[in-house]
Amino acid sequence: MYQLHPLIREFLIGKREASGIADELKREFCRVMVGEARKIPETPTLAEIKAVNPVISHLAEAATTQQDWLIDDDLISPFGGLSRFYEGQGLYNQAEPWRKDCLSVTVQRLGENHPDVATSLHNLSTLYDNQGRYEEAEPVYLEALAIADRTLGSNHPNTILYRNNLQLLRDRLRHSP
């Protein structure tokens, strides 16, 4: 690991922009970061967390300042990777902004009626559910399910998953004090 002095970094960024290949480099950077994000499992081990830790700041850059160079199919990946990284450590307060930002960015770019919006909603509701925030999770699960039903159909595996998770949540709500 190394860090460049801010002036050197600024100089190199200027050179990159003047080279005429800046956009291609940004797209490639984002493609690599999507690959790294997809390697982060739902429940990372300590070794996996340690291994991916050096990439986290780069994933955050791909999700924020470089998101214009993410293709639509990859848009949610950096956000998901970041959230899984923090959720896997029980750092829900750090994971939640990434889930919310993912939803916002996805709606803005893809529109409200897109399967990736349903996925973003489902991921946010699952985060709430895992924290025991059942009352907050239910309407988000419902919205994810409605979009998935419209865009994917009622027999699609994601729609079935969302319906099952909603039912499990409702079972927990019935049995909670």
Rank of each mutant, 00 (worst) to 15 (best):
Y92V: 11
E36T: 14
A118Y: 04
V52A: 12
F85R: 07
M33R: 04
A146R: 13
P6N: 06
N165Q: 12
F85A: 06
N158D: 14
E112Q: 12
H122T: 02
T43W: 10
V140F: 01
P157A: 06
L124A: 02
T64D: 11
R27M: 06
E28M: 09
T64R: 11
H114A: 02
I40Q: 07
L166E: 04
E61V: 07
A63Q: 05
E143P: 05
C30K: 06
G14K: 09
H5I: 06
L169F: 06
L12M: 15
P177D: 11
K15I: 14
L168A: 14
N53R: 14
R172E: 15
I56P: 02
L142M: 13
L82W: 06
V34H: 06
D74R: 09
E28T: 11
A63Y: 02
T65M: 12
T119L: 15
S104M: 14
A144Y: 00
A63K: 05
R133K: 13
S154D: 12
L59P: 07
T119V: 13
H156R: 09
Q3I: 15
D73F: 05
P157F: 00
P157M: 04
S125R: 00
E28Q: 11
D68C: 06
L145D: 00
E135G: 07
T126M: 09
E135W: 03
Q94I: 04
D171N: 12
L110M: 04
R99I: 06
Q108P: 05
H5F: 05
A62F: 03
G20Y: 07
A22V: 06
S83P: 05
A137H: 03
G88D: 02
L4I: 08
L169N: 07
I56G: 04
G20V: 06
Q108G: 06
S77Y: 11
E10L: 13
D149G: 10
Y2S: 15
D171H: 11
K26N: 13
A37G: 04
A18V: 08
L168T: 11
L121R: 01
L75T: 04
R84D: 03
S77L: 03
A60H: 10
A148Y: 01
P78R: 08
S57V: 13
H122P: 03
N155D: 15
T65C: 13
S104Q: 13
L127D: 02
L142S: 12
A144W: 00
K26E: 14
A63N: 04
I56S: 02
I56T: 01
S77D: 15
A95F: 10
V107T: 15
E10P: 02
N155S: 13
Q131K: 00
H156A: 08
E135V: 07
A118W: 00
R84T: 04
N164A: 10
W98Q: 01
C102F: 08
H175L: 15
